[in-house]
C-alpha cells in the first residue's frame, strides 16, 4: 500500500503569536517550527499501516528550504521518503493543488492529512485534494482500519459518532484516537539523513483568497475572585453581570 502523508510546518504550540508589517504578516522571528501535531497522528498511522513491508510512506509538504528540518523529523519518525514543493504555502487551495498535482501521477492508495493545522486552523486541504482527484474523503476521523481496498472510518458527529466505509483511494483527515503519536528513535534520526528528499517546483494556481490582516484578541479583564464559601455570589454574578445563566 502506497501512503502519502501531508505535513504542515507550523509554529510550536507555545509560540507567542505576533504580527509585523502593520499586522499583515506573521512575525516568525524567534519562532520554533514543528510538524503540525495532527499531521503527526496521520504520519504515525501511516507508519503503522506500512509496517512489516506492507507498504511505503511518503511525506509531502509545501514550503521553502526552511521546512527541511520539519521534513527530516518526519523521516526520522519513520517515513520512507519525502517530497517538498518549493513554494511558500499561500493558502489551502494553493497547497491542495500542489499536492494533488503530485499525487495524481503517483497512484497512492491512501492520502492522510491531519484534521487541521494549528496555525490557520483550516480543515480545507484534505477535502480540496479529494475533490481535485475526485475521490472520497473524510475530514475528521477518530478511528481508521484498512482491509484490502476498503477503509472503515469512525468519524465524529455532533453528539456522537458515525461509522462509514469507503473505497480506496481516499483522503482521510486524522484526529486523536487514530494512532498514538510516534517519537523518532536514535536509529530513525541517524537514517533520516540518508532518506531521499526530492524538491519539486510548484504549478501555477489561481489565487481566490488572501489574508489582508491579523488581529490579536482583546485581553480579558482581571479575574474577579469569589470566596469559596460564597458560591451564591458566583451564581448571581453569572446571572446579573455576565448574563450567561
Amino acid at each position: 500500500m502506497k501512503i502519502l502523508v501531508c505535513i504542515s510546518n507550523v509554529p510550536d504550540t507555545t509560540s507567542k503569536i505576533t504580527f509585523t508589517n502593520d499586522n499583515t504578516a506573521f512575525n516568525n522571528v524567534g519562532v520554533q517550527y514543528i510538524v503540525n501535531p495532527y499531521d503527526e497522528i496521520a504520519l504515525s498511522k501511516a507508519i503503522d499501516l506500512a509496517e512489516g513491508g506492507k507498504g511505503s510512506v511518503t511525506v509531502i509538504t509545501v514550503g521553502d528550504a526552511s521546512t527541511d528540518a520539519t521534513i527530516r523529523k518526519a523521516l526520522a519518525t519513520g517515513a520512507d521518503n519525502a517530497i517538498r514543493i518549493n513554494a511558500l504555502p499561500r493558502d489551502a487551495w494553493f497547497v491542495a493543488n500542489q499536492i494533488a498535482n503530485y499525487a495524481k501521477e503517483s497512484n497512492f492508495d491512501l492520502i492522510l492529512t491531519g484534521r487541521e493545522s494549528i496555525d490557520y486552523n483550516g480543515t480545507q486541504v484534505g477535502a480540496f485534494i479529494a475533490s481535485i482527484l475526485n475521490i472520497p474523503s473524510v475530514s475528521i476521523s477518530k478511528k481508521l482500519d484498512i482491509d484490502g481496498r476498503t477503509a472503515t472510518v469512525e468519524r465524529e458527529i455532533e453528539g456522537g459518532k458515525e461509522v462509514l466505509t469507503l473505497n480506496l483511494p481516499a483522503v482521510i483527515g486524522t484526529a486523536e484516537g487514530v494512532a498514538e503519536t510516534k517519537i523518532p528513535n536514535m536509529r530513525g534520526i541517524m537514517t533520516a539523513r540518508t532518506k531521499p528528499l526530492d524538491v519539486i517546483e510548484p504549478i501555477e494556481v489561481t489565487q481566490l483568497s488572501r489574508i489582508v490582516k491579523f488581529e490579536t484578541p482583546e485581553p480579558r479583564g482581571a479575574v474577579t475572585l469569589v470566596d469559596a464559601s460564597d458560591v451564591e455570589k458566583l451564581v448571581s454574578l453569572l446571572h446579573e453581570k455576565a448574563k450567561v445563566i
Binding site: 487551495w93 480543515t123 477535502a127 480540496f128 481535485i132 475530514s139 468519524r155 458527529i157
Partner: peptide
C-alpha cells in the same frame, strides 16, 4: 462549520471555483 460542514465546504468550493473562509 460543523463536523460534516468541514468536509463539505471545501468540496463545494472546489467545484464552484469559489474561495472558502472557514471558521
Amino acid at each position: 462549520n460543523s463536523f460534516s460542514g468541514k468536509g463539505l465546504a471545501p468540496r463545494v468550493a472546489a467545484k464552484l471555483n469559489a474561495a472558502l473562509a472557514d471558521g
